[in-house]
């Protein structure tokens, strides 16, 4: 009876042990995280908002596709995507492209793909990103249509 209680007490992790375990788990992913930050830094320097704005105005389907691709290759704080999208709006870029751009910026990231695949597996990463890509385009289309209904 006593030995059973003892073994049960032994199994209960202390917060310190849980903290150590969490720290080890995090540190083991540090190379991946540093690599992603490195790639994101490169993209933020080499892909400028001016480069992004030159690619729109070729019809709804292409604008949505362009917006999705550009959002996916860009990275940084979500607020930056709003500022860029607002700038694109003043340049007459369609609402379809703007929503696709904002959505892709916050949900898709080509620079994160290797890290995601190494943590969750290639199968999950492929399915999730394909679904996210499709969702982004559908949301861009549906949101613009819905907005049209209310304006």
């Amino acid at each position: 009876m006593i030995s059973k209680e003892k073994s049960q007490t032994k199994k209960q992790p202390t917060f310190l042990n849980s903290f150590k375990k969490a720290t080890i788990g995090f540190v083991s992913l540090l190379p991946t995280i540093l690599a992603v930050v490195g790639l994101v830094s490169c993209f933020q320097i080499y892909v400028t908002p001016q480069m992004l704005s030159n690619l729109f105005g070729h019809g709804t389907a292409l604008d949505i596709l362009d917006g999705t691709f550009l959002g996916a290759i860009s990275s940084g704080n979500g607020a930056i995507s709003y500022v860029v999208a607002d700038g694109l709006k003043t340049q007459g870029v369609s609402m379809y492209a703007l929503i696709a751009f904002i959505m892709a910026w916050t949900t898709l990231s080509f620079t994160h793909l290797p890290a995601e695949a190494s943590v969750f597996g290639v199968k999950f990463t492929t399915y999730r990103n394909l679904l996210t890509f499709l969702s982004t385009m559908i949301i861009a289309y549906l949101s613009t249509i819905t907005l049209g209904l209310f304006s």
Partner: peptide, 20 residues
């Protein structure tokens, strides 16, 4: 206790190479 095994070393090496 969980063992420390680094993940993404090849990916990091690729990014370091890109920086170089």
């Amino acid at each position: 206790m969980k063992k420390l095994e680094f993940k993404g070393l090849k990916f990091l090496a690729f990014v370091v190479l890109l920086f170089i």
